[in-house]
Design a binder for these strands. Structure first.
Ligand SMILES: [Mn+2]
Ligand SMILES: [Mn+2]
Ligand SMILES: [Mn+2]
Ligand SMILES: [Mn+2]
Lengths: 230, 230
DNA sequence: ATCATATTTTAGGCTATTCTAATTTTTTGT
DNA sequence: ACAAAAAATTAGAATAGCCTAAAATATGAT
């Protein structure tokens, strides 16, 4: 019986899911930092979650944690709710794209299956969230993605913005003001090895935009290999 | 500083508000029964809430509790959110009127002021909830009401349904099927002193409906004193 | 290989909420 | 007025989360 998961547990699982996409196993320190709690609290929680009836985490002392299949499903369930809620808050209640995350982060733990289904239907069963995030299917399948960080791009490469990190409202407002939103096509003009700045131009715009690594590391893109004739 | 109130505290205040509308001070036993917890838990909670910086409750041992002005405001804030949410779930997400209460009872503790305001706006700043409940104004004013229980009515009196108790889904489905919804006018045909049954006929309907006291005690009505000439 | 640093875990505590069982207070019925 | 019954309170304990400070373990640099 997977009884009900508490808000805290859902947030831990969600966080571990996201962190283990890049790195493999995740250390308690990183989880603590991401969640804004102390490492001691994380150790405590991961020990509890790895000792459940069907464990949600795979944990060994000093080895970090990984999600079990059950933990992964629970994480994806919460992520689906979160992303549907963000879209809903924007499209139905008129929230701006920098406001939705905080509200969704609380609501995601409280809505019923029924609510989730009705929201999905009102939104037309979307596959992408407000910031370009893929939304897990109702059956909790998550598409594999080949997106790269804008950070990795170099001059003359073309790309299309796929997703932007949504947990910094200030950054989101800036990106929106610059037209850097999912779907926007662009070309990289210049790369500066000293500070990792990228200079780029959005399709259909004259203006050139210079972005530092702390921004380009938050943006996922699809890189279009440069056409032979150009 | 009234820091954030927990879900449990909000539910206690809401419950005490409703109970103290009929009776004056409320005993711990009644609160316990309504909330589905033990009397010991209630004693504990009311002692905490009456000992806060600005107390939310006025409590004296064995004397029951009453809300302070702060407690009343907090209760009305939660009640406003609850009733707006019920309407929203019905009108925007298509919930039926017997489904909304349970969902709203969880969401009411989690939505932000922003969410409340946007929902109110989408709904057109309604004054009445889905089951006829008055919705406290944004400034938390609650209209005085003179509604009576259907229970108290006698033959030949006419009335208009104002509000039905919404915490029993089965009853709500029954009432809807009979056309007993807020706004419905009716006349009382008969009263049986033995079992307190009432027989009545809804305006624009031929059918007669017989209701027992366990139902008529859940329905608030406005009684139209019988016109002189009829 | 060894020591210094960084990371992780343990130990001990705190708050909020609830429970059960025991006790106290109030109410009621004679 | 008094005992029995009902209601309320206290005492003691559990669970979930979180914290700080101390101890243990791992890493990595000479
Ligand atoms: Mn988000
Ligand atoms: Mn969350
Ligand atoms: Mn309700
Ligand atoms: Mn509630």
């Amino acid at each position: 019986m997977t009884g009900h998961l508490t808000d805290a547990v859902e947030d831990y699982l969600k966080t571990i899911y996201k962190l283990s996409c890049s790195r493999g196993r995740v250390g308690t320190g990183l989880i603590a930092e991401t969640l804004g709690v102390t490492p001691a609290s994380v150790t405590d929680m991961v020990q509890r979650l790895s000792g459940e009836d069907p464990p949600l985490l795979d944990y060994a002392k000093h080895q970090g944690v990984a999600l079990t299949e059950g933990g992964r499903k629970a994480a994806l369930e919460t992520i689906r709710r979160h992303r549907l809620l963000e879209l809903f808050l924007h499209q139905v209640l008129g929230y701006s794209w920098d406001q939705v995350h905080v509200e969704a982060d609380r609501l995601e733990h409280v809505i019923s299956e029924e609510f989730e289904e009705r929201v999905a239907e009102v939104l037309g069963n979307p596959r992408r969230g407000l910031h370009g995030e893929p939304i897990p299917s109702p059956g909790l399948e998550m598409p594999d993605r080949e997106d790269r960080y804008l950070l990795e791009m170099r001059p003359n490469q073309r790309g299309i913005v796929q997703e932007v990190n949504d947990d910094d409202p200030g950054l989101l407002r800036f990106l929106e003001s610059q037209g850097i939103v999912p779907g926007a096509g662009f070309v990289v003009l210049d790369y500066s090895a000293y500070d990792d700045n990228l200079r780029l131009r959005l399709d259909g715009s004259e203006a050139e935009i210079v972005l530092g690594a702390s921004i380009t590391g938050q943006i996922l893109v699809e890189i279009a290999e440069p056409q032979a004739g150009a």
